[in-house]
Design a protein around this nucleic acid. Sequence first.
DNA 1: CATGAATGAGCTTTCATTCAT
DNA 2: GATGAATGAAAGCTCATTCAT
Lengths: 228, 228, 228, 228
Amino acid sequence: MPTLPTLCDIASSARAKRERRKDARPGELLAAALELFVEKGFAATRAEEVAKLAGVSKGTLFLYFSSKEELFKAVVRENISGRFSEWSAELETFEGNSADLLRYCMTAWWERVGSTKASGISKLMMSEAGNFPELAAFYQEEVVKPGNDLIRRVLQRGVDSGEFRQLNVEYGVYLLLAPMMFLALWRHSLGPCVAGNGELDPIAYLNTHIDNLLLGLTVRTPAAPNAS
Amino acid sequence: MPTLPTLCDIASSARAKRERRKDARPGELLAAALELFVEKGFAATRAEEVAKLAGVSKGTLFLYFSSKEELFKAVVRENISGRFSEWSAELETFEGNSADLLRYCMTAWWERVGSTKASGISKLMMSEAGNFPELAAFYQEEVVKPGNDLIRRVLQRGVDSGEFRQLNVEYGVYLLLAPMMFLALWRHSLGPCVAGNGELDPIAYLNTHIDNLLLGLTVRTPAAPNAS
Amino acid sequence: MPTLPTLCDIASSARAKRERRKDARPGELLAAALELFVEKGFAATRAEEVAKLAGVSKGTLFLYFSSKEELFKAVVRENISGRFSEWSAELETFEGNSADLLRYCMTAWWERVGSTKASGISKLMMSEAGNFPELAAFYQEEVVKPGNDLIRRVLQRGVDSGEFRQLNVEYGVYLLLAPMMFLALWRHSLGPCVAGNGELDPIAYLNTHIDNLLLGLTVRTPAAPNAS
Amino acid sequence: MPTLPTLCDIASSARAKRERRKDARPGELLAAALELFVEKGFAATRAEEVAKLAGVSKGTLFLYFSSKEELFKAVVRENISGRFSEWSAELETFEGNSADLLRYCMTAWWERVGSTKASGISKLMMSEAGNFPELAAFYQEEVVKPGNDLIRRVLQRGVDSGEFRQLNVEYGVYLLLAPMMFLALWRHSLGPCVAGNGELDPIAYLNTHIDNLLLGLTVRTPAAPNAS
DNA sequence: CATGAATGAGCTTTCATTCAT
DNA sequence: GATGAATGAAAGCTCATTCAT
């Protein structure tokens, strides 16, 4: 015998739907916040905008995050998922010479990070590190160190195989890192200001760096005078 | 024989002391502004703080700089763009090969800008460019363009003289710029978070970059295979 | 039989009360603003005072009016320009001779504007026009022009029907306007200083003007020499 | 025997010159203040501007007038010199009919007051009466009353001679006053905002008023049906 | 006396945060 | 839980007024 839903049924179904939405809320808010923080910076992003983009009211945001600062921390933490293990595996299984590996690494970084919203996180950290020291330490530990390790292993691979000259890999890391970071930051700060004329083509920029990097790193055999 | 100061002396000394203070004010304000802008960012620095640090009242600041933005521009001019002509002259009169010039440039940058508070300005612009388009445009015009020009001339000198290989100097500029900018940004953002352990030695960092840069740029004569 | 309010009733009543306050706010703020603008002038009235008089906080004012100038414009619309269409309709449907219409217009102006706080707005604009060109332009467009048009139509009606003599209505407008404006200005400036002795009776003042105005305007038939 | 001027001589001569200038100072400041107050209003006129226009420093202004308000009072008092006795005499000796006298009065007012800076004083008083009640009372006594008396006598002259119809001269005064005051105020407030199109020609404006005024006032003999 | 550098109260506007509904 | 009206602490800038010189 079919029964009409009771008030209680309706309430519980509404509650169920609401709880389902409730679970999704933080994620929607974090996504909205990431979008806006990256686009406009922390200070210039208004809490209300984040709420609106997430489709909730201003008050709701503060239900889930006790302050704008806490929201920021959550955004950064959320988006620093370690894709490092995956990359580490790729590095391990890469077949080919180290020059190609290095080139592959920087190109892959551009495709997967540099050109995406993820690079905005780097910019955010650079900008706000001073205001969020704990967060900076966290980022340092979770991103900078593993990232540097990865790069270091690429260099060490080349040195060990005799493809690259001897060098202090601790500092050599920055030969790769600096160009990538500069590009990421540039694209999220002054870059957009020169849109139109004199704009930077990321691919050409990276290739210029990679080419010169390898010219400097690669050991050239005396027998074959620089044919490059 | 000691003489008593004349009436005229007294008057002029009085005026002199007053004028000395007046003349000193802008410099004191600029120093205070640089300090705070670099430490806290442009938006987060309150005009009153700058005034207080310079030992004057809020109103006095606006006696010398018509707005906070003008104050910022003055800071930039004082610390960076005002010095390009001097650097340009140095470049013009440099005697020696282009590799040495390049090395000299990057070292000099470190000593005069990178290691000083002035390097914070670069970080500042990266952080705030999006929110202050007018400042970004100003910086672009007064710092980025002339700075790039300077670097381009160094590269072109080497290419023209046959010391450096042929390369697109437009992008080659970033071979020098990226390492310097990354260092400046790092030292004013995440750098301070790792103070003590694993800290970056700027000199070693720069030398690593310079060495590899020159290895990549320099044309090696086939007759004397990589003598480096 | 009385019924308990349902859940829905309670909810809607709660919302209703909130919304009623929200709906009432603009009106309360406009009333407060009119009061203070008229009493102290536009520039000398602080936004916070308006808010306080309306029983809300400073911030709330800007929730409803995006700036002090917009608040002023809203006050003008509410009290003057928003009522022109009604007046225009009255003019259109008035039955009676043009002398009576003219008399009716000036009397109605006194009752609806001149004797109310709204007349302070005219004084306000006269005082502040020079310092707030945008407001002056707004007032010109929203009040002066439509107001003059209205008066012009009254005159034209009389001329067209042969009741009034031929005259340049463009300037004739001021035959009505000047007396009304002078009264408004007087009552909000020097008038209050002579309160008690020698004070101006507005009705007598206006009637004196109207009577003489009509004596001057009305065409007297030669057959019945001044029957007035 | 000629003597070199002693220090004391020099000082006293300097003192003499300075005292001469000192005597002139208040007048120069008052003139400058009148100019600016009339042009921009009381609040919008900065003390420093007044000082500069008078050719002295900001501090000096406050040496002669203890505050901006005192300066304003002095300006108004200074510029309300009674030219009334002169006008009264003119009125007394005027030969011609009263219509011509009335016409002459209003025209003369325009030439001597309305079109000159002096009319700015009226506008100032209207604008600032609320903020300077004592001043308003003073103005009332020194300007408004004598002025009204003068006008009243013109009307009374016409009524006594039978040229003008019977009317309550107490209120009749405003038949002349309102048009003149409106013109003065208009020209110093909203008038300048419509410069170019629809601007008011003062002469045409006044003539329109005078013509209608006289048509209304003048007794027309039944024998000569309105030939006007 | 005269100066003008210095002051700081005061103004409009913004926005993170709260809380009655 | 969710809402959004309300709050009030800031912040940049102005300018009458003071006072050391």
